[in-house]
Nucleic acid binder design. Structure first.
Lengths: 348, 348
DNA sequence: GTTAGCACTCACCCAGCAAGAGTGCTAACA
DNA sequence: TGTTAGCACTCTTGCTGGGTGAGTGCTAAC
C-alpha cells in the first residue's frame, strides 16, 4: 500500500492539474507538461497501477485519468503544501471583520461573504448554539401606552428584544418590578433550562398583579427564547458555482442548488460536525446527497464558550490548500475579535 | 389602433397560451386548440396585422408567433381577469404572517418566502425606510463591568440594540442618568436628523462625567443609527428560475442570477418605484439589464406611516393575474397586521 | 525496468438529410 | 369583400455517419 516516490510524484501532478483545469489528463500530456524525466509509456504503467489500487479512475476507455476521492484524501493529508494568503487579502478580511463587532450576526454574515469571495465557492455559516448560554438580565421598557419592549441579555453579551402588546395599560413601576423579579428568578439559568423546565409556568403564582401581566407576556417571552435558541444559517456565493465547469450542466447546477436549499438539513450537518478544521471529501460525507461534493468547515468561538461554524461546499475538485488556509484565517479572526470583553484591549 | 373584437380574442389566446406553455404558437395549432370558429388562414391574416402594429413577433420565419411587451401590456390592462386565490393558500399565508408579529424583519422574510412559493418566481422585499421614524427612547443597561447595552426605541415601536464595550467601568446611576439625558435630547427627532444635524457632537459639552462616557459610546451610537437606516433586502426563490424553460440555457440563468445579485441596485429599484401594485413589463423597465424581465411590486405599510416594498421578478411571460392577486393579498395582510398597536384588537 | 510502436476505443465535431411546424401568397368561394 | 383552401417555401430539430484526435493497453526491443 506504500507508494513509491515516483508514484506519489505522478499522483501529485495529476491531482494538482485536475484541480486547476478540471480535465482528465493523459500520460502524454502529463509528461510534456510536467517534465518528470520519464516517458509517457512509463507513466502509463504507473497510472495503471494507481488505478488498480483505487487512486485514479477513468471516465471512459480513451479518456485521461481523474483522481478518486481516495487520491484527494492522500493529497490533503500528505501532499499538499500550506498556502500563504496574500497580505492584501488578509487585510481586507481583518478589516471587514472588525466592523460592527457589536453585532455577531453581521460579522458572521460578512465572514460567509468573504469566504465565498476568496474561495469562489459557496459558503455557509451558522450562529452559535446558545443552549448553554445563561441569562443575565431581563428588562421591560415602556414604548407607548399599550406596548412594552421585552429585552433579554445573556452572560455572553447577546441581547435580544421583542415588542409586546399589552391587553391593558401598565405603570412604569410595575414594569420595573417585573424586570427585577424575573431577572432574580432566571439569572444564571441556561436558556434551554428556562424553556424546558417549566419554570415559566411556576412563576405566575408569586404576586397578584404580576400574575396578570405575566399571563400577557408569557407567549412573547417563550417565543423570544425559542428564537434565541434558533441557530441562524447564512449562505453566500451561491452563484459562484456557475463559474465552475462541473456545473455547466443545468441538471448538475440544479441538483447542487436544490441540496443547498435544504437549509435545515445543512444546519444539521454543520452542527454535527466535529470542531476545528474538518475536510470531508465526496463519499466520506455521511449524507448520500453530498457524495459528489467536498466540505471544509471550521469552528469559531465567542467569548471562549459559545461556538459556531463556517464552511464551504463545492466539487471534490477544489483548492484544498487555499480554502483551508482562508477558512482558518477567518475563524481565527472571529474568535480573536469576540474574545475581548473590555474596550481597552484593542490591540494595535 | 383600436383592435377588432376578433383580433383581441386571437391576441388573448396567444398571450394566454404562451404564458402557459412558453412556446411560439402557429395559426393551425391555435385554431385547433381554441376552436374559435375561423380557419387557420384567417388567423394567419389577423396575426400578420397584429405583427405589423407591434403586438406579435416572430423568432424566425417558420416559427409561430410570440407576444411582444406591448401585447402583455394590453393583456394586463384590458384582457386578463381577476384571479381568485384558493382559500387554502389564503389561509397558509395569513397563518404564517401572523406569527412573530413583534419582529418585522421575520415577517418580511416570511412574506418573501410565501410569495416565491406561490408564484414560483424569484421574490424580493425591503424593510421600511426609517428616515422619518422618530426616536422615542434611549436606554443603557449594564451587562458586565465593562459592557453595556445601548438600546434605541422608535415611535413606531422598532427596537434596536448594541453591546458597547467601555474603556473604564461606570456606575449604574451614571448609565441611568445618561439614558435620561439622551432620551430628553433626542426624543421626537427623526433618525436621519439625529445623524446629520451634528447634534451628537453638540451633546458632549453638557456635563463633565457624561462627556467622557459619551466619547466612548458615540461611535457605537452613530453606527447603530446608521444600521437602523439601512434598508434590508431579502431575496427568496432564486432556484425557482430553474423550473422556468426560459432559463434552461445556462447563460440566461447566469445573467439572471448576476442581475439578482446586484443587491444595492435591486434595493434602489424597489425604493424608487411608485406605491401600490405596479407592473412593469420588459422594455418598460428603465434599467437596461431588466429589459428582458417583468417586475411586479406592491407596497406595505407599518403603523400607517413607514412603508416597505415586496415584489417578484421573472420572465415577461408570467402569470400576471395570479401574481398580482397574491402579492396584493400578502401586502394587505402585512399592513393590516402592523396597523394594530394594542394587543386587544386581535380580530377573529 | 524503461521505452517505442501499434492497434484499438471513444468522445466530439460537422455535414447531410428527412420530418414537421409554420408562413406568405394566390386563387377560388360565399 | 372577407374568408378559406392549397401550395411552395423556410427554418428548426433530430438523427446518422464518417473523420479526427487524445488516450489506452499490449508487445517487443533496448
Amino acid at each position: 500500500m506504500d507508494l513509491s516516490e515516483r508514484k506519489l510524484r505522478i499522483l501529485h501532478a495529476i491531482v494538482g492539474d485536475f484541480i486547476r483545469f478540471a480535465e482528465p489528463i493523459g500520460s502524454r500530456t502529463l509528461s510534456r507538461k510536467y517534465d518528470m524525466g520519464i516517458s509517457p509509456a512509463t507513466i502509463r504503467n504507473e497510472m495503471a497501477d494507481l488505478e488498480e489500487i483505487g487512486f485514479l479512475t477513468h471516465p471512459h476507455t480513451s479518456a485521461g485519468r481523474v483522481p478518486s476521492d481516495k487520491a484527494y484524501r492522500l493529497y490533503v493529508d500528505d501532499l499538499m503544501q500550506k498556502y500563504e494568503i496574500p497580505e492584501e487579502e488578509k487585510q481586507i478580511i481583518a478589516e471587514k471583520l472588525k466592523k460592527n463587532v457589536s453585532e455577531l450576526e453581521r460579522t458572521i454574515k460578512h465572514a460567509a461573504s468573504l469566504l465565498s469571495e476568496f474561495t469562489n465557492l459557496t459558503s455557509f455559516a451558522i450562529t452559535p448554539n446558545q443552549e448553554s448560554n445563561k441569562l443575565q438580565h431581563i428588562k421591560f421598557l415602556p414604548v407607548d401606552e399599550y406596548t412594552v419592549v421585552l429585552m433579554i441579555v445573556t452572560e455572553s453579551g447577546r441581547v435580544t428584544n421583542t415588542a409586546v402588546k399589552l391587553k391593558s395599560t401598565c405603570t412604569e413601576e410595575n414594569l420595573a418590578l417585573l424586570s427585577k423579579v424575573m431577572t432574580y428568578n432566571y439569572k444564571g439559568k441556561t436558556l434551554s433550562d428556562i424553556l424546558t423546565l417549566d419554570i415559566i409556568k411556576e412563576f405566575e403564582s408569586d404576586v397578584e398583579v404580576m400574575g396578570r401581566l405575566m399571563e400577557n407576556i408569557r407567549p412573547n417571552f417563550i417565543n423570544t427564547l425559542e428564537n434565541m435558541l434558533d441557530v441562524e444559517l447564512y449562505l453566500d456565493g451561491l452563484t459562484n458555482i456557475f463559474s465552475i465547469p462541473e456545473y455547466n450542466d443545468i441538471e448538475k447546477a440544479k441538483d447542487f442548488l436544490d441540496m443547498i436549499n435544504k437549509r435545515e438539513h445543512l444546519t444539521d450537518v454543520l452542527i454535527n460536525r466535529e470542531d476545528g478544521v474538518i475536510i470531508t471529501i465526496g463519499n466520506e460525507n455521511k449524507e448520500d446527497i453530498m457524495h459528489d461534493y467536498s466540505l471544509i468547515t471550521a469552528t469559531y468561538h465567542v467569548q471562549g464558550r459559545l461556538m459556531g461554524k463556517l464552511g464551504v461546499i463545492g466539487p471534490t475538485r477544489m483548492k484544498y490548500d487555499e480554502v483551508t488556509s482562508i477558512i482558518e484565517y477567518i475563524t481565527d479572526n472571529i474568535s480573536r475579535t469576540f474574545k475581548i470583553t473590555r474596550g481597552d484591549e484593542n490591540d494595535e
